[in-house]
Design a binder for these strands. Structure first.
Lengths: 197, 197
DNA sequence: CGGTTTCTTGATTGGGATCAATAGGAGTGG
DNA sequence: CCACTCCTATTGATCCCAATCAAGAAACCG
């Protein structure tokens, strides 16, 4: 898929799950009044589309942030297979449950962290996920705009820009537009964990 | 279960799902630095515990907000049954998917709504859920403290108190401590949907 | 009752939003 | 390749909503 292309949209009939083979995706949700928010990102090795299983139609828009390859898995076929194999059945449920737990984490972030903590958590989370599929955990070309990051973290793009600059001044990271290098992992952890007063 | 009693805690081994027969529960998550946040509420007819399926242990604390009855469903038994019945299988997945979509909604709320919008959405959501199991949608005894509501909505208890007072002044609701009566459903909808700018 | 928790309301503060201006890349077509 | 435009990023100044601090009232509960 080309950068910017849409994988599925809100309201589309649910037919398949999608595994990311390479690339980077974002999911956004739209409210009735037109406000839009990024609700998640998916990278190599992760599975998208689980929001559609229950309602049998998708409840968010997913599009490629960079040129990407995906593997389409027909859900009907998957179900048939799972009927045979309790292992796969279990795997499926595990993935969905992991998604629930992941979202709990985002709720905590949005509900109780300040801007520094949110961004530190975000960077560390990305780092771990890059590492999980063999990419460098300390250096990445993040193909997202400040606005997309901000939307995900419940902040404005100016705040993302300022906070990245501050982290750089403090020697935690090096930023050059979309290239980010993490210099002090432990320092970011400290920012993220900082006790309330 | 008595009010205040714990159903399960973070780290407990996952064994069962729990259907609420009557009463009201809250789920909270705790961060490493001790901060705690309410991540959800469950009322009659709703199912709890799905966060535990993947990791095989629970990732939040659930406790009764008022005296409640629950139905414990052993997950192993449920799985065995589901092996027989594709319908049940589907039902299970549907529930989990619904949980994912519900959390998307909370993310939108926390990430992009102001205090008025959050509280209006919360009240309307409760109202719909009470209606869903035959209770009055326009009048309920909400057994939560302002602090618990605030924690869920990412606001402080004083803000909840002020906003409830304001809604009352505007004729949208009547509040008497934990008793809440919705006077103007459409008005609350309008508050919730209010266009940015 | 008396003690504690919960709620309300007022005054002040502060973190991030908003407004604004400039700079820097990326993409396009000549 | 350069010129042009558009989009993205940075940084400063100001504002505003909700947090915080504070005090008193009301309700719950043993």
């Amino acid at each position: 898929m080309r950068r910017g292309a849409s994988l599925y949209r809100t309201g589309d009939r649910f037919t398949s799950l999608y595994a990311v083979r390479s690339g980077f995706f974002k999911a956004t949700a739209v409210l009735e009044n037109g406000r839009e928010q990024v609700t998640g990102f998916s990278m190599t090795g992760e599975v998208m589309g689980m929001d559609g299983i229950g309602p049998e139609q998708h409840s968010c828009n997913v599009s490629a942030v960079e040129d990407s390859d995906i593997c389409v898995m027909s859900f009907a076929a998957l179900q048939a297979l799972a009927q045979q194999s309790p292992g796969l059945q279990h795997q499926l449920r595990k993935m969905m449950s992991r998604e629930i737990v992941r979202e709990h984490g985002v709720m905590l972030l949005l509900g109780s962290m300040n801007a520094d903590e949110r961004l530190a958590m975000f960077l560390l989370n990305l780092s771990r996920r890059f590492a999980a599929h063999g990419a460098s955990p300390s250096e990445f070309n993040l193909r997202l705009t400040r606005e997309e990051i901000g939307s995900y973290l419940g902040l404005k793009l100016e705040t993302i820009s300022r906070t990245l600059s501050k982290f750089q001044q403090e020697g935690l990271i090096r930023v050059k537009l979309k290239f980010i290098r993490i210099l002090d992992d432990a320092g970011l952890e400290r920012v993220m964990r900082r006790d309330p007063d």
